[in-house]
């Protein structure tokens, strides 16, 4: 964990556990995740579908529908103006939580096509946010701010488009408008949950560039969630690798890419083609992800791991988190000197 300057910390997640309590059993979607995000930095969160990336992100803004979802343990500490607020202790509907949403933390989602209410203009939905958080004195001031924001995110003719309805925007334009809405109160953290997954590759590049530019201008932190390794390596300063609700590896982008430690991370790297390297055979990770309803008692990756050590990896207790290199953490017995 980059510990260099604790005053720059914006968000600390400690041992977060978000479970879905269903009749058929409890799904431990997020099961003991630690993350830290610092001012002006980008944290990339990667992992396969269903590994708990999105649930972690939604937990931060308390957007998990309850029931069945519930934060059963852990802390989500927001550092704001010298005070520390534990979001995990707030009620999802209480005013303190609503004041954080959209104001301190903005969020953009995977589905730009359905992310705006269909019956109100884009401008109305942006100005609404500005007015809730009292960033403008009146409607007309809020509207001119909305026009500026739309211009900033690269929407042509913002004076006219501000009165347009969502269905009049293309997917890429809608995601730009979405970003404008998420940024309208200058949040210190922007959570981007697979922001480009449903967009064309060319649009994807534009959106990522836009996010990087805006970050350089505003100094906000970004939590970038993606299953796309290339995107994360491009954008992120730090990377958290998640597998089945657990954070299996955490370190700087360089460390994670040049020296992946966890067998799962190594497997991920072997399964993507390299553009400039020699042509290699792609190696998929064997096996399938176990059902989160029925997690293995030891290491959750044990059943698919190429380095599986019988009697060690399947011990029915949590895997220790090891700081293998400075600021490079891995949850694996391979690096635990006491075990091997």
């Amino acid at each position: 964990m980059p510990k260099d300057n604790t005053t720059d910390l914006i968000l600390e997640i400690k041992n977060l556990k978000t479970h879905f309590i269903l009749n058929a059993g409890t799904i431990r979607a997020v099961d003991g995740v630690d993350l830290t995000i610092s001012r002006g930095k980008t944290l990339g969160v990667i992992g396969e579908s269903g590994c708990g990336k999105s649930v972690t992100a939604h937990s931060i803004l308390r957007l998990i529908p309850s029931p069945p979802g519930e934060i059963v343990d852990g802390e989500i500490l927001l550092h704001r103006d010298g005070e520390v607020i534990d979001i995990a202790k707030l009620k999802p509907t209480e005013e303190a939580m609503r004041n954080i949403r959209g104001d301190d933390i903005g969020m953009i989602f995977q589905e730009p096509m359905t992310s705006f209410g269909p019956l109100h203009t884009i401008g109305d939905q942006i100005t609404e946010t500005i007015l809730i958080h009292k960033k403008a004195a009146d409607k007309s001031e809020a509207k001119s701010q909305a026009v500026d924001l739309l211009r900033q995110v690269g929407i042509p003719n913002p004076e006219q488009r501000v009165d347009g309805y969502p269905h009049e925007f293309s997917g890429g334009m809608r995601q730009r408008a979405m970003i404008a809405m998420a940024l309208c109160c200058s949040p210190m953290l922007l959570i981007a949950d697979e922001p480009t997954t449903s967009l064309d590759v060319t649009i994807e590049a534009q959106i990522l560039e836009l996010l990087a530019d805006l970050q350089a201008q505003t100094g906000m932190a970004i939590m970038l969630i993606s299953h796309n390794l290339a995107i994360v390596s491009e954008m992120a300063d730090d990377i958290a690798v998640m597998y089945l609700g657990k954070r299996v590896e955490f370190g700087t982008t360089d460390a994670i890419f040049d020296n992946p430690l966890h067998p799962y991370t190594q497997g991920l790297w072997r399964s993507i083609p390299s553009v400039d390297g020699p042509l290699e055979k792609l190696v998929p990770i064997p096996g399938v992800v176990p059902s989160p309803r029925d997690l293995p008692s030891g290491c959750v990756f044990a059943s698919r791991c190429s380095e599986f050590m019988p009697g060690i990896c399947d011990q029915p207790k949590p895997v220790p988190i090891v700081e293998a290199d400075p600021d490079h953490f891995v949850a694996c017995y391979l690096y635990d000197n006491e075990q091997v």
């Binding site: 957007l63 209410g117 946010t129 809405m181």
Partner: peptide, 21 residues
Amino acid sequence: KQYVTTTRAKGLPERRLIMKY
């Protein structure tokens, strides 16, 4: 739907959110 979550993430009070969208 997604737009309800999006609007909730903006910090709109629940009642206003449901009635307006």
